[in-house]
Design a protein around this nucleic acid. Structure first.
Lengths: 303, 303
DNA sequence: CTGAAAGCGCTTACAG
DNA sequence: CTGAAAGCGCTTACAG
């Protein structure tokens, strides 16, 4: 392994100079000729600074962690979300660690060791009771994704999304518009999407026709509809059965395709969730005690 | 921050004893009473050992990295693959780093620094020419996912998958079975899936009816088919148009659903790819110079 | 502007 | 069985 001392010897300078040059510090003047010699030596030797050395010295690991639930259904995420996190981390010159909280391990490795400066959590629902407390105890700044908290959170604006989708249908001339989703439950979007739909319908003086699976059994409400807004693709089947002729619209992380029907999609801002979460976390690393106002990010229509 | 010295003082022992107890070393005898006192002190103080300290001392970072392409289409991956990687890493007591090779950065942070002991790469195609070389230069053991290399690779057995899917249709009584995919191209699966299909048809003396998009223009080949095997859901549309009555089968990472048609899926072993990759990488960390034979993992029918 | 020294937190020989 | 010392690679005051 090549150490900074090897580079120093090769360039005929001290380790301090190597550090100053390689970290591009501008507060200390280094003659251009010396600088070039150091850079050349580093390249020639294939020098890669050991993260741990810097971590020891600086007291910062330079890592941020992305924490998921072991239960996939409580911690849905898409490649786009991870893209946002990776890009955000890279932009701020941090490494991204990923792990899931495994119930078989009492305390996950990431919380057992000091390995990250802060965490981004992705718990759609059923956050373990003591998780927030454990994070606070470990003095780990945290930002929540997909959870509608007042502070330190980034989530899709599901109210706006459903509202916009509904208004889009109204603009297209529909007046009999249905909604199919779940009764308000563990995840805030269950309540917010139907609320957004209702707000749009009410604002335009149109009749509400919402089916909340597990609560409404009124399958008769929908048949007259010419358009139906679906909570997720999961309920498209039900919508199709109840209302075969209607235009179907769904909310989803990626454009929804099917063989012989055109279904328009309102997209969850997954990439932006990731990028914003990192941005907020970086702000928190600066002042861990200051709660940051949550951000609700808009949904937009696919294409 | 709580250090091992704080724990030592609290328990009235030396830092060495704390280390021995907390790492559960059995080669050094510690009186049970002392051991308990150390454990109690660690718990009471909320001690979390600093990874970097151990990394410095051991020369191992304790991290493994998962490397993706910036171009999503060259580096497809599913949450299940990541699950396999996370579980594998956790099992071997390592942290998992994820990053993508950003073309805007000449050398990604992960290769610029010494931050991981080894890497798992996920490049479906178009691996940057100098990547393998750069890894070797950095002395980073690497395992390739989804790439049909002779050594140090784990990939789906696409030949077997397409063959099994075809035989499954033959067993069900079909004799006019079509295939739709792409002409052999960047990813090995393009050639292997059609080859698996052909092998099954030939073995049973049935006529081949393959459409290779971008090569075969023979749309007339399919209409008589009662079943069609599709390379991925991407070509389902084409299959449906050419052959509306046929039973459709596709290869995909997750069960493919549609509103009003039942389409059976042969599943790519994503979770297993991840778990196997980590397992192989761990073996490589032990003896970096020994090339490991590649593993081709079978596909199986959904449900 | 450059270099010698100190110290980040950890674990492993080594002496007692 | 326990403790004092050394050293992993790095960067930052501090002297020159």
């Amino acid at each position: 392994m090549v150490r900074s001392e090897d580079v120093a010897k090769h360039a005929g300078v001290s380790r301090a100079t190597v550090s100053v040059v390689l970290n591009g510090r501008t507060d200390i003047q280094i003659p251009e000729e010396t600088r070039q010699r150091v850079l050349a030596a580093a390249t020639a030797l294939g020098y890669r600074p050991h993260r741990a050395g810097r971590a020891m010295r600086s007291g910062k690991t330079g890592n941020i962690a992305f924490l998921l639930s072991t239960f996939a259904e409580r911690s849905l995420f898409t490649p786009r979300l991870l893209d946002g996190l990776m890009d955000g981390a890279a932009q701020h010159d941090h490494h991204l660690l990923v792990a899931r909280l495994d119930d078989t391990q009492f305390v996950p490795k990431l919380l057992r060791e000091f390995a990250a400066d802060g965490v981004v959590l992705n718990y759609n629902s059923q956050v373990p009771g003591d998780l927030a407390e454990r994070l606070a105890q470990a003095k780990l700044p945290a930002v929540w994704i997909n959870d509608k908290r007042e502070h330190d959170a980034v989530y899709p604006d599901d109210f706006q999304g459903a509202q916009s989708a509904t208004e889009d249908l109204i603009r297209a001339g529909h007046t009999q518009i249905g909604y199919i989703g779940w009764a308000p439950g563990p995840h805030y979007s269950m309540a917010d999407r139907v609320a957004g739909y209702r707000a749009a319908m009410t604002a335009h003086g149109l009749p509400e026709r919402a089916v909340l699976l597990g609560q409404t059994s009124a399958e008769s409400l929908l048949p007259g509809c010419t358009a139906v807004l679906c909570y997720t693709p999961d309920v498209l089947d039900a919508a199709y059965r109840l209302c075969p002729q209607a235009e179907l619209v769904t909310i989803c992380a990626t454009p929804y395709r099917t063989l012989d029907r055109s279904i328009s999609t309102w997209l969850l801002p997954d990439y932006e969730l990731g990028a914003n979460a990192i941005e907020m976390l970086m702000a928190k690393l600066g002042s861990p005690e200051t709660p940051l106002p949550a951000r609700a990010l808009p949904l937009r229509k696919a294409m």
